[in-house]
Nucleic acid binder design. Structure first.
Lengths: 368, 368
DNA sequence: TTGTAAGCGTTATCAG
DNA sequence: CTGATAACGCTTACAA
């Protein structure tokens, strides 16, 4: 326990801002002067003096918190609009203990960095946060090294956190729970105390699988990524459930998980063909793209000899030939919803889990 | 002028934090209590008292700024390490007028969001910033609506900015110049006052084109994106330069720029085939992928009947068949370099433009 | 409705 | 080498 603390502490220490002893003293003075020239930075006090009232009143007029005379309020609003005054967020942060920032945690594994999913989520989050005057601080997490996350949290740089993925053994989530900062996770979690926002992955994957089963496919294979990611298991479960519903046997030998490099697809596909499969579902587009490519090289006709589908649709497959049947989720909306929930949480409201069911099954040539 | 100011001001106003009048008063108190229970938040003052010295001394020991007795320093360092004390960044920001954040501006056009380029840059930036105790605030810019950027800057949320793309008519850059905040741009600019970090796009594109010319291609076409992006013009120039160098005529009718939707590729390819081309270079992988796909549908054999190459390599083309000849840049390094430059700039150092020349021409099947 | 004054947690100034 | 004390710009009891 004690040892653990020391380790963590020194980890954190390593992240302390490195004060570079340079000649920036004069520079900064100069810079500020200059900045003042272009754009005389007003303070709430300047506004108060100019208007002959107290800064308390100005503060109240701006925040709308206390009661202020209507004429005074209008006077203030007009003045600040005209002079483009903006309260100093840092000062407010210090006084209120709020930063008006949220942190977004991104995985930076080799795979994830090339996936459009996270960027798309960001767009949705950004729409929401910016309409509330919040900004987004991005923190990358490599493996289970959460030191970046720790720094952001311990330095009070954010009022809350969005995790963009959930893990079976979720170190980041555990850390956030422990320190009591508001956070929501995109994905699902066994832990009922964690607020989650997720696509209906189970239902969607089950539905897509069912559709293929209904097309008469009997020997359907599944290829997916890391089982450390909850989503991999959820999708797998959806796949299995479709078989159960159809009253069919599912052959576990046709399921390949933890396929984290597309280079492994080639060998897997060969094995699968020996096992006489008639279809493959891939958990994401990278895998599906690779399967399509290998099929072409091996002269396996898609869809005639093998049907192919993907559980997740992105632009990666946009120009695939044949076009690939897949699930389509609204990532932007997912991000927006997560952001909304987090802001509510920060605001002290009660927030519950959300599952977004607006996915689409898109049938294309690869399963015709 | 006056009118313009008013417009901008009201734009900014719309972005003011929306104070939601909810019941968060008690909530916040409770939350802080709880947080205090788990993790008694120390202040520099607590440390000072515990050690029986003044907070000035503690501050100096931590920052290493003033001279402090060695024994005192060690005492302080040991104490803060043991108790995992971290100075409150907001307070420091207020006192020092530095936030230890940099802003990164992302385009959120439909195209850009799906490109891995920006995410990859981010990874590089993040490595650098986090080693200096800085964090990254991401700001999305749609079209030329810079209100998000304005908010981040005017609210003093960042000490500097990285623009991840340059435009011919660069509104964001103009704004940043005007307000005098340190910034660097990823890309190139006509404006010599703007610090730029860029890949050697001109040279690289010229080289790739030259290679194809050397293979005997005479009627080489070019398809590219928005000419509002400086990079599109740079790449085009590189293409042209290769012809000049080879002493060949280049047919301008074979150049299609401002192709912003891949759906337009089909028509363009048909036109090009009528013009008897023997090769196409695409400015990015989305376009190249689409060209490959259309070729397959139109039964145009690649590379036998048509060579195809891309000026930018990403995982999008990873599983393309045939594999596509392309330029490979180190986006991560690009981001890291930009971040390094910005931190130097913030630190008051003199910084000059940088061009990264470590690109690779990767020859694959599509041009065999 | 409005104002005064005491924080918020650092850093910076200027004495000692 | 060290320590009061005053910024930093805003919020918020508490008074008036």
């Amino acid at each position: 326990m004690c040892r653990r603390n020391r380790v963590l502490a020194s980890e954190a220490r390593a992240e302390l801002p490195c004060e570079k002893p340079t000649q920036n003293k004069e520079f900064w003075r100069a810079k500020r002067e200059k900045s003042v020239m272009n754009n005389p930075k007003l303070t709430i006090d300047d506004v108060a003096k100019a208007l002959g009232i107290s800064k308390t009143t100005v503060s109240r007029a701006i925040s709308g918190k206390g009661r202020v005379g209507n004429s005074t309020r209008i006077k203030v609003m007009e003045y600040i609009e005209k002079h483009n005054f903006r309260p100093n967020v840092m000062a407010r942060a210090l006084a209120q203990q709020r930063t008006f920032n949220i942190g977004v945690v991104w995985p930076d594994d080799y795979n994830a960095v090339d996936l459009p999913f996270f960027q798309r989520c960001m767009v949705g989050m950004s729409e929401i946060t910016s309409s509330y005057g919040y900004d987004i601080v991005v923190s990358l997490i490599a493996g289970d090294d959460i030191s970046g996350l720790r720094r952001v949290v311990e330095n009070h740089k954010v009022d809350g956190i969005i995790l963009t993925r959930t893990l079976v053994n979720d170190k980041p989530a555990a850390y956030l729970k422990e320190c009591g900062i508001p956070f929501v996770a995109i994905g699902s979690s066994m832990d009922s105390e964690i607020i989650c926002v997720d696509n209906a992955n189970f239902e969607a994957c089950k539905e897509l699988t069912s559709v293929l089963i209904a097309k008469g496919l009997k020997r359907l294979a599944l290829i997916g990524g890391s089982t450390e990611h909850v989503i991999t298991r959820t999708r797998h479960n959806g796949f299995v459930a479709a078989f159960v519903d159809a009253g069919l046997e599912m052959d576990p030998a046709l399921v390949y998980l933890d396929v984290e490099k597309t280079t492994k697809v080639d060998g897997i596909l060969k094995e699968l063909m020996k096992k006489n499969i008639d279809g493959v579902i891939c958990m994401d587009d990278n895998l599906a793209g690779e399967v399509i490519a290998r099929c072409r090289e091996e002269h396996i006709l898609v869809p005639e000899k093998l049907k192919v589908a993907s559980f997740y649709n992105s632009s990666i497959l946009e120009s695939s030939v044949p076009s690939v049947t897949s699930l389509n989720f609204d990532d932007r909306n997912l991000g927006a919803t997560a952001a909304k929930k987090l802001l509510e949480l920060i605001d002290g409201q009660d927030v519950s889990n959300t599952v977004l069911t607006n996915y689409e099954v898109i049938l294309k040539e690869s399963t015709k």
